[in-house]
Design a protein around this nucleic acid. Structure first.
Ligand SMILES: NC(=O)c1ccc[n+]([C@@H]2O[C@H](COP(=O)([O-])OP(=O)(O)OC[C@H]3O[C@@H](n4cnc5c(N)ncnc54)[C@H](O)[C@@H]3O)[C@@H](O)[C@H]2O)c1
Ligand SMILES: NC(=O)c1ccc[n+]([C@@H]2O[C@H](COP(=O)([O-])OP(=O)(O)OC[C@H]3O[C@@H](n4cnc5c(N)ncnc54)[C@H](O)[C@@H]3O)[C@@H](O)[C@H]2O)c1
Lengths: 207, 207
DNA sequence: ATTAAATTGTTAATTTATAAACAAAAAGAT
DNA sequence: ATCTTTTTGTTTATAAATTAACAATTTAAT
């Protein structure tokens, strides 16, 4: 549902940061394209759509493009995120150190199981009942759902009620939300099943 | 890169199983559509493309469609999967109980850190050097990469060399593989950044 | 038996996304 | 100073995906 071009812009950004850290000041559409596995025309088209301009014959000025992409992605702010469900996935995300690099911060975790709240976490944890209080106090707009399938829709409803506008969902269900709330699904099993399908198909085609 | 229609077929399957477990024998394109958030025409088109036939006025026979989708997705076999990287994400996946339901089995984990191999896991763990041995012995085609960005491409190369044909990649890099090896990326941070972009845009449009 | 209602399945239309083509500009070479 | 090469940015073309339209068929009702 989220446009492909913005997803690529996010990838270009990571790639530009990597090239910059390697000491490059400029980059060509061709290089960027190769790195993220698209055509150079796709890169130029994406850049054009977001008014990211380069220099003929001299390519793109990395710092300049990065500044503009950072603007687009609101990288001037740190974006607060809550997570509901402190099981396997929830704990893995809490331990993850990579959010800060990308201007995001997990500000609170929630669970219904009091045992899960006792673990000494890097972030404060609360009973799931506290979702509305914390969301409103901290002014959070993004939430992650890492609860079992059976609880996901209810948790989602509570998040929406509390004011969350974007949800990253690990549970294998399609959540129902009002039109102003966007959901992004992560489907580990679904992706694996798709890989099985494609690899088996390739195998057959060879023979 | 993987076709959208097969991804939806995978979703339909989960939905059909749920309806079946609720006692339903038949289902309409409209119901299925609503559940996974597409139009009924989309459902019928997808079904048509995979030759999944229903009955006019009586909808689709759930068991019948499931049998055929199971065939398509090779659900007659259990698909073996290896995982490289036994850190936060790796551990979360190892503890996950949901693979068996979907005819998939994590058969081995790998890491370069000997400390990670000592943890008493539900699956056997090996030094990363053993990847080719285990992959060939167990005849595995699918692998998961859950190592840091800096190690991902090398691990990928080793997997490909060993005979892996499909990779689920959690590291925030675009892996380079030969054309007969398919990669599916999971990008938690990227998805969150996309959510930030969309929610901020929606916010602006309202005002 | 006939008619009406409901639902599929296919074809056509539209939209979106990707790829190709090429003119324009900039840099460098002659 | 002119010509050549390179690379962007836009325009045009192609392909993929979604939506709409509608005939065909089945069931149920009259
Ligand atoms: N772990 C994986 O590798 C994996 C893989 C694919 C999909 N998933 C999906 O991700 C989700 C989480 O998986 P997991 O392995 O972390 O599960 P888990 O069972 O380890 O953790 C779920 C947590 O959610 C909490 N919870 C349950 N109901 C709740 C509620 N109403 N409010 C707040 N918290 C609640 C539980 O107490 C538990 O701590 C599941 O939907 C699962 O299907 C996980
Ligand atoms: N944990 C998260 O929530 C999260 C979120 C987004 C992205 N990711 C990405 O997922 C990947 C894994 O994240 P993590 O948090 O589990 O990292 P982690 O550091 O906890 O675990 C990585 C594991 O890989 C092992 N490793 C390193 N090099 C290896 C090699 N060459 N061969 C085999 N094993 C090797 C390490 O010993 C370690 O055990 C990273 O690329 C990370 O950027 C993780």
């Amino acid at each position: 549902m989220i446009k492909k071009n913005i997803q690529r812009i996010i990838q270009y950004r990571m790639c530009l940061l990597r090239f910059q850290s390697l000491g490059f000041e400029r980059i060509f559409s061709y290089t960027l394209a190769q790195e993220i596995g698209v055509s150079p025309e796709q890169v130029r088209k994406d850049f054009s759509q977001f008014h990211l301009r380069g220099n003929k014959k001299a390519g793109y000025l990395i710092q300049d493009i990065l500044d503009q992409i950072n603007d687009l992605l609101h990288k001037e702010d740190i974006h607060k995120i809550i997570m509901v469900g402190l099981g396997n996935i929830g704990q893995a995300l809490i331990k993850y150190k990579g959010f800060a690099n990308r201007n995001m911060q997990l500000v609170a975790g929630f669970d219904i199981d009091p045992a899960k709240l006792k673990k000494n976490c890097r972030i404060p944890t609360f009973s799931a009942k506290e979702i509305p209080v914390v969301v409103q106090k901290e002014n959070v707009h993004i939430g992650i759902i890492a609860v079992p399938e059976a609880a996901a829709q209810e948790v989602c409803n509570n998040m929406v009620e509390a004011g969350i506008k974007g949800i990253l969902n690990f549970a294998p269900v399609m959540l129902k939300t009002p039109p102003d709330v966007v959901v992004q699904n992560i489907s580990v099993c679904g992706d694996l099943e798709a890989l099985v399908y494609v690899t088996e198909k390739n195998k057959k085609q060879e023979s």
